[in-house]
């Protein structure tokens, strides 16, 4: 494993190999490398302990297209992992496997070191995995409160919907994300793109998420709202929540993420601590699949990049 040795700082410690260069037998993976040691020398604390989430060798194909090809990523409590890649790289598809939207063709998912099956979104939610989808996934014909609480409505003592309580709570969350938001009685189809995005974010953070997946959460937001989401991510991180952040905005990712994972054509190009790489190096990873010194290459790295 030459690529590991290249990084002298990590030489002595077992390293979490994020993108395996060749398929690894399941037996090899059964015993987990002592995770406490992994982050030993890194200045950011969050990656200590068992990973919240570990996805190993995930593959999924649509028809002939290998949307995700033996991708492995992980996430530690209180850590923000940025997921980068060109359009169609497979970022959304990979996290949709985690959120239960897609059934993987191969690979394993571990939560807190235990292998679990995620066959549908309910399984993922039961593990505390909340997702803000790129498409927002809102029911357009009902209002913000109904969307926020969809699938876990507040009930009155009689077991009927407590719409007033739900609206009241929604007002509080939305005020925090988007203070100018007033249109609580309208179906979300009547809202602006940014307002809709705020509703989707509110839904993901309102329930006790342990793992938050944010697929381009600020794509439609204005500068003020984007800043608010940034602050929110930092707060959630401080609370020990693990966050996958997909974004095309390198500045955002560098600002918020502890680590970043770059994908290209469904494969992981490499993983790096944010502070070990430069913008240009990351751009090289995204565009050319070139893995720089500071990063651990994955199966998607071009040969000469190693």
């Amino acid at each position: 494993m030459a690529q590991v040795a290249k990084s002298s700082t990590r030489k002595s410690t077992p390293v979490r190999i994020v993108g395996k260069t060749k398929p690894v037998k399941a037996a090899d993976l059964k015993t987990h490398e002592s995770p406490a040691a992994v982050a030993g020398r890194h200045s950011f604390a969050p990656t200590r302990g068992t990973p919240l989430i570990e996805m190993r060798n995930i593959s999924i194909a649509f028809g002939g297209i290998k949307a995700v090809d033996h991708a492995s990523i992980d996430l530690f409590p209180g850590e923000v992992v940025g997921l980068l890649g060109h359009n169609g790289a497979g970022k959304s598809t990979l996290i949709k496997v985690l959120s239960g939207a897609y059934l993987r063709d191969a690979g394993q998912i571990f939560v807190d070191g235990k292998e679990i099956t995620i066959a549908n979104p309910r399984d993922a939610k039961a593990q505390g995995i909340e997702t803000i989808y790129q498409t927002l996934a809102l029911a357009d014909n009902v209002d913000a409160a109904a969307n926020l609480y969809l699938g876990r409505e507040l009930k009155t003592r009689l077991g009927t919907l407590d719409d007033a309580a739900m609206e009241s709570e929604t007002r509080k969350v939305m005020f925090r994300l988007n203070p100018n938001f007033r249109r609580f009685k309208e179906p979300v189809s009547k809202l602006s793109g940014g307002q809709r995005q705020s509703v989707a974010i509110a839904r993901a953070i309102h329930f006790n998420a342990r793992i938050l997946i944010m697929d381009e959460p600020t794509a439609a937001l204005g500068p003020q709202e984007t800043a608010q989401v940034g602050a929110l991510i930092k707060q959630l991180k401080a609370e020990g929540i693990g966050i996958f952040l997909i974004s095309h905005d390198l500045h955002d990712v560098f600002d918020l993420a502890d680590r970043l994972v770059v994908m290209k054509n469904g494969k992981v190009v490499g993983t790096a601590n944010t502070k070990d790489v430069t913008h240009d190096e990351v751009l090289g990873m995204i565009i050319a699949g070139k893995c720089p010194k500071g990063a651990i290459p994955g199966p998607g790295a071009t040969r000469d990049g190693v």
């Binding site: 549908n120 979104p121 997702t131 996934a137 809102l138 009902v142 109904a146 969809l150 699938g151």
Partner: peptide, 26 residues
């Protein structure tokens, strides 16, 4: 239709079946 979560799910599913499924509705 209006006071139970069953009814709410029916309407939400009609509005966006995929979103309803992703929200955890069977």
């Amino acid at each position: 239709a209006t006071r139970t979560s069953f009814g709410r799910y029916v309407y939400a599913t009609g509005g966006n079946p995929e979103a309803a499924e992703l929200a955890g509705i069977n």
